[in-house]
Design a protein around this nucleic acid. Sequence first.
DNA 1: ATCCCGAGGG
DNA 2: CCCTCTGGAT
Length: 212
Amino acid sequence: MNAQKRHEIFTRLQAENPHPTTELNWNTPFELLAAVLLSAQATDVGVNKATARLYPVANTPQAIIDLGIDELKAHIKTIGLYNTKAENLMKTCHMLVDLHGGEVPGTRQALEALPGVGRKTANVILNTAFGQPTMAVDTHIFRVSNRTGIAKGKDVVEVEQKLLRHVPKAFLHDAHHWLILHGRYTCIARKPRCGSCIIEDLCDYKDKTELA
DNA sequence: ATCCCGAGGG
DNA sequence: CCCTCTGGAT
């Protein structure tokens, strides 16, 4: 795919949704980190309900440590995978206190060393809390990038690097959200809605008849 | 490749 | 009822 096509694609996605944002609620880097950690395989709406209960009680690493694992689990029990997430968040809080003065570190290496924080979560933190130009490639972005031809790659790292290289600068910050929204509502995994897709004429996906 | 695992929607 | 939701660790 050429640069002009990419530019046109993001121009249309931007027109469709001028100001895309995370729907996760947070006020501090730590609140963002905890929310993103909790958001794996969960909806933002669901995470917000849990953090609305948790943060008034505890919104710092030390406060969550003081809360204790059982109380933490009780507060986030409405989210899927809550058991693992509570254990990971608790270990992460201990590491933040013991190794980083209670603050959220701003490097990929330090972030990915935290339990429950992988490449995708680290990219979100680096981008949203530290303003770094990263691309958090999730299942939606991976699928949409490969199907459309915006950035083809065999794994998320390859897609991530191609997106960083090829998405026009002006669109880079919001591209993340546009691709996710497009993947969720139009370029659906099982059955893409090519008929109602606004970039259908610019898309590489040629196998539409089989899955449509 | 498999486990974790609740809420909301079709 | 079945499926998915901005994954990560083993």
